[in-house]
């Protein structure tokens, strides 16, 4: 079907408007990350859209180099929060993926755990804020507060529904003939799972893991409640980047924000194909 020219013009105009709205906030933060303090323009100073004198000073600052412009020195660098985010999100992903993959396989092939789909969907429904009191008490009791492994455990539980549903739809879609061939050759079902199914599912597993990792990496609220100092994650640390003398450390925050934002965006684009499946709990596949 041929579309009329006016429609094409309208389409591109609308899309470019959407692209501008999408990109401006991101580009503004990027530009801010490379601006020297004189261009931060909290008050009074003229607003610059693009850094006139691009500098890496903001990045150096958050990694510990003292800055004469900023007067302040950080009592700790961004290094440990980045490490904390990485460790907790990674271990959380491993927990969610291990339990989720195993359960998804158990349900998909053996019909075990019939209660899980509903239970896990409910788990997603509730605001984390509404279950945090017992979690905080339990974590304090287990001595998990302010540790990356404590965060990882709760991350693993919170993202378990996503891991489970993603893997379940992948297993449901997988042809069974190969597994059956393995069974005929005398492999045990466990062996079929570990030696045939999992290696075959490498790509879906990787996609699901990236998806879960992005979710874990994106958390703010849980880390805000469960970490206090030693193992705060990037977003929590970011909020602390201000001082009574200079107010908000715009450039430094932007630099850190950029570091936090880039990996999930790249990963997200890499697993674009599976986003719908993951977000709708497999109700919709693309």
């Amino acid at each position: 079907m041929k579309r009329a020219v006016p429609f094409e013009i309208f389409r591109y105009a609308a899309i470019f408007a959407a692209l501008a709205v999408t990109l401006i906030p991101i580009l503004w933060m990027m530009s801010m990350a490379f601006k020297p303090i004189g261009e931060w323009s909290a008050t009074g100073a003229e607003l610059t859209w693009w850094p006139k004198e691009p500098t890496l000073a903001n990045f150096r600052f958050i990694f510990g180099e003292s800055s004469s412009d900023l007067i302040v020195a950080l009592d700790r660098t961004a290094l440990k929060p980045i490490l904390s985010s990485l460790l907790s999100a990674s271990l959380g992903t491993i927990i969610a993926m291990s339990a989720g993959t195993a359960a998804a396989y158990g349900l998909s092939r053996f019909g075990a755990g019939q209660n899980l789909p509903l239970a896990l969907t409910q788990l997603r429904l509730f605001p984390p804020m509404a279950v945090m009191i017992p979690v905080m008490i339990m974590w304090a009791f287990l001595n998990f507060t302010d540790s990356w492994w404590g965060l990882a455990l709760i991350y693993g539980i919170v993202t378990l529904p996503f891991a489970f549903w993603l893997m379940k739809t992948f297993f449901d879609d997988m042809p069974r003939e190969i597994e059956e061939a393995g069974l005929v050759e005398g492999c045990s079902r466990w062996r079929v799972f570990t030696r045939i199914t999992l290696p075959m599912m490498r790509a879906p597993l990787a996609s699901a893991a990236l998806f879960v990792f992005i979710l874990n990496w994106s958390d703010y609220l849980i880390a805000l409640l469960l970490t206090t100092r030693e193992w705060v994650t990037i977003p929590v640390y970011m909020a602390s980047l201000s001082s009574s003398m200079t107010g908000q450390l715009y450039g430094a925050k932007a630099a850190l924000g950029l570091i936090a934002a880039v990996p999930p965006v790249i990963m997200g684009i890499a697993i674009q194909r599976h986003l719908v499946r993951g977000l709708t709990f497999g109700a919709l596949k693309q």
Binding site: I26, M29, A260, P264, G268, Q272
Partner: peptide, 23 residues
């Protein structure tokens, strides 16, 4: 265009909050 338009949902919400705080 599709990939670009999907980007906001992948930005860490806390970072998005900071972006709009600045804006």
């Amino acid at each position: 265009f599709y990939s670009i338009l999907l980007m906001p949902m992948m930005v860490v919400p806390a970072v998005a909050g900071y972006m709009f705080f600045m804006l």
